[in-house]
Design a protein around this nucleic acid. Structure first.
Length: 107
DNA sequence: CGGTTGACCAAGT
DNA sequence: GACTTGGCCAACC
């Protein structure tokens, strides 16, 4: 990685997140000392590092999964969501249950 | 290099 | 609880 763009940093950081845990776009932006919540969203969708960078482990600050399924109807993401639940994350409708329990903030 | 977009966020209605 | 508005920032055209 020669380019030190926000994208690369985001991937690197997200890579640290253990399974069974999730984080928010805001937390990532905060950890990177930026406010590009939105840009990170775009980054995830472009996520070229599929299983390496668990973009599905990133959710909105409200504990909602985000605009993946209901809005954008991303079929691929739904599978990731199912995998999340398998890892131990309980999701209800579009929102994470016990969000605080699975929320990762200790980078 | 200007304008549009978006897997966002917070506050207001 | 759902929708709207303003703001923020990077990537794309």
């Amino acid at each position: 990685m020669t380019t030190d763009t926000l994208t690369n940093r985001t991937y690197r950081l997200l890579r640290r997140v253990p399974k069974g845990k999730v984080t928010t776009y805001k937390a990532l932006a905060n950890a990177l000392h930026t406010k590009a919540y939105r840009a990170i969203g775009q980054i995830m969708k472009s996520n070229p590092y599929a299983p390496e960078v668990p973009c599905h482990r990133v959710v909105a600050s409200d504990g909602t999964i985000g605009g993946f399924m209901g809005k954008t109807k991303g079929a691929a993401i739904q599978k990731k969501i199912a995998m999340l639940q398998k890892e131990g994350v309980n999701i209800r409708r579009n929102k994470i249950q016990e969000f605080s329990s699975v929320y990762w903030s200790d980078w």
